[in-house]
Design a protein around this nucleic acid. Structure first.
Lengths: 232, 232
DNA sequence: GATTGCCCCTAACGGTGTTAGATGACAAGT
DNA sequence: ACTTGTCATCTAACACCGTTAGGGGCAATC
């Protein structure tokens, strides 16, 4: 019997680890994280599931590689403007990048990454922070803080979407509206602020929410650089 | 045949939704999130798995309830000091609380919560923020920001722990040491900052990392309250 | 006493990650 | 040319998983 490796639209290229990651990326984008199984990735390559374990220790490692691949094609922002503008651009780009790939934040967030692609980004960020005058320790902490903020935010941002579509009805605005109504109908004597701020709390403009937090962080970083501007 | 409900150390109490959540909490604490299956929760109650579906739509809903239960016994900090001190205490308590329960952040982070326990906390937070002088919209955004920051941070903080113990060897310091050595042996010409800051980047003092980010956010919030350092 | 509705049961479906061991392809050594 | 051996994939299987279908006991209600 011949090898039916070619029966699926598979690869002759002899199934490297990168090929696994590529197939996983494809499955993630097409079917979502919950449907990302070893069997499906294998099928994508025209191969049986156990074959994957020759190239990868287990699914967890594949997800680690996937996490790094997800940030691989993120391009750093141009080096124009002051450090603040550059960091702002960095974070907005990072968020846009994660939002662009389905379930990306769920893969990336809470994973101890340190893959090669992330290292490149980290190095570049540290360079700009040091150049801006941040001490070594602060630069390291800042990088961690920003990465954490963006990943955590996008995780929250795209989670209700997938949760809602799992239940049935779809659009994010429906979920947001339901949340606002839920808040508004609370007993006003016990939850006066929640009722009063229902509209603000269920503000669907995620861009604004993201920007608010980011600007707070940037403001806070600025105080590190200006030890005595007069007030404090 | 008699009912063998009592063969496991089970409950006569007729299996309410709260009982499910209680059992789930117990399984989570004892076996971790990855081992939290419907069958195991059922076994904890001396019951078969399909019985759970009478009280709960699916596992996702059980996790939602679990997420709220995980923040249920968080006590707000005393109302002493200025808003800054109170918010700081709030976040540190929240972090400690999540760290105290196994895999708590993995359950809570990235879940659209709004359970009753969280609503109480949110209401209290909003009250303090309004009292401190924050406009309505800013108070809402701030609450979201802080909750997001703490959950995201703890998610990162306790994730490598469980990841490492899944692989085999245990302690977090081992993982951190491996990360530092990995950074130090990078080619110094391509990654000068990563090599130089290896120690800072793999700083294992998570408390300090957390405090750094939190203080930045608090500094940033302070600039919202003092638009012009002259008047008010 | 019959009926209804609650609540748990057994059985089963299709899926999962992962391992054991057989099998083939193909290069190196004799 | 034949053996050897390593790589890379296969088949078969294990122990689970979430979830559904449908049966049956048991209390309250009519």
């Amino acid at each position: 019997m011949r090898t039916d490796r070619a029966k699926a639209p598979g690869q002759q290229p002899p199934l490297t680890q990168e090929a696994l990651v590529g197939a996983a990326l494809l499955v993630l984008e097409r079917d979502g994280l919950d449907a990302l199984s070893m069997r499906r990735v294998a099928a994508e390559l025209g191969v049986q599931a156990p074959s994957l374990y020759w190239h990868v220790r287990n699914k967890e490692q594949l997800l680690d590689l996937l996490a790094d691949a997800l940030v691989a094609d993120a391009v750093p922002p141009p080096r124009v403007g002051d450090w603040r503008e550059q960091l702002r651009a960095y974070c907005h780009l990072h968020r846009r990048h994660l939002l662009g790939k389905r379930d990306a934040a769920r893969v990336v967030a809470g994973r101890f990454n340190l893959g090669p692609s992330l290292l490149v980004i980290l190095e570049d960020q540290l360079d700009r922070l040091r150049e801006a005058g941040f001490p070594a320790a602060d630069a390291a902490l800042t990088s961690y803080l920003l990465g954490n903020y963006v990943a955590g935010f996008v995780l929250q941002e795209q989670s209700p979407l997938s949760a809602a579509e799992a239940v049935g009805q779809a659009t994010r605005t429906e979920v947001v509206n339901a949340a606002r109504e839920h808040l508004q109908q609370l007993p006003a004597d016990r939850f006066p602020h929640l009722v009063a701020l229902a509209a603000d709390l269920s503000e669907p403009d995620m861009e604004a929410r993201f920007a608010f937090g980011l600007e707070r962080i940037l403001d806070g970083l600025a105080t590190l650089l200006e030890p005595e501007p007069g007030t404090r």
